[in-house]
């Protein structure tokens, strides 16, 4: 199934994991920068596959998301099967297996933000950006995602864009916040 996915999605270039072990830096391969960063993580764990979450984080940091090709490349590098890597990649909320926009908006939808009406923010964001949860704006600027508790319950409702946390957010503040990223 994974082989099929590799064949049919993304660039359609790769269909054999053996391909990933050689060659120059490109989509199906890891770049030198990525390899160096992954090597650093591998050196700190007893066996290679223990560094897979770190490897996914590193590749995502460079490419924005984890494509099937990236899964294959990481698998080959850490001597795992693509299925093993994908099982980990799809488990964690913050590893993106689909392309995302340049900025990811994480709107907290947990209980304190529910009580403090995060729903109003969601309605306003949908209108302003013309996207729903899980979607990306046409200009690839924003992806909007729901997010579990941001640990900011005393300042609910809260949202996070990239590395920036916004507290006590009101609908009136949204334009000003979004403007920073456009």
């Amino acid at each position: 199934m994974i082989a099929q996915k590799l064949n049919t999605k993304d660039t359609g270039k790769a269909n054999n994991t053996a391909l990933y072990t050689t060659g120059v830096a490109g989509e199906p391969y890891l770049t030198d920068l990525e390899r160096t960063a992954i090597d650093h993580e591998v050196a700190q764990v007893p066996y290679k596959s223990a560094a897979v979450i770190e490897a996914l984080k590193i590749v995502q940091q460079h490419r924005g998301w984890i494509s099937d090709d990236s899964v294959g490349a990481i698998a080959a590098y850490l001597q795992m099967s693509p299925a093993e890597v994908d099982s980990v990649a799809t488990f964690y909320n913050l590893i993106f297996r689909k392309p995302v926009g340049r900025h990811v908006i994480l709107l907290c939808d947990s209980i304190s933000c529910y009580v403090m009406k995060y729903g109003d923010l969601y309605t306003a964001l949908q209108e302003k950006l013309n996207i729903k949860f899980g979607e990306t704006t046409g200009d690839q600027c924003f992806t909007l995602l729901p997010n579990c508790c941001l640990g900011c319950c005393d300042h609910a409702p809260a949202l996070m864009i990239d590395n920036d946390l916004y507290k006590d957010v009101t609908v009136a503040m949204l334009d000003c916040i979004l403007k920073k990223y456009t």
Partner: peptide, 22 residues
């Protein structure tokens, strides 16, 4: 971490640290 409530459970946390599903 990379976000999953289960990671707070101590044995799931250990799996996450070992690079596995939590």
């Amino acid at each position: 971490g990379v976000g999953r409530y289960m990671c707070g459970e101590e044995t799931a946390l250990l799996n996450a640290l070992e690079g596995k599903r939590a």
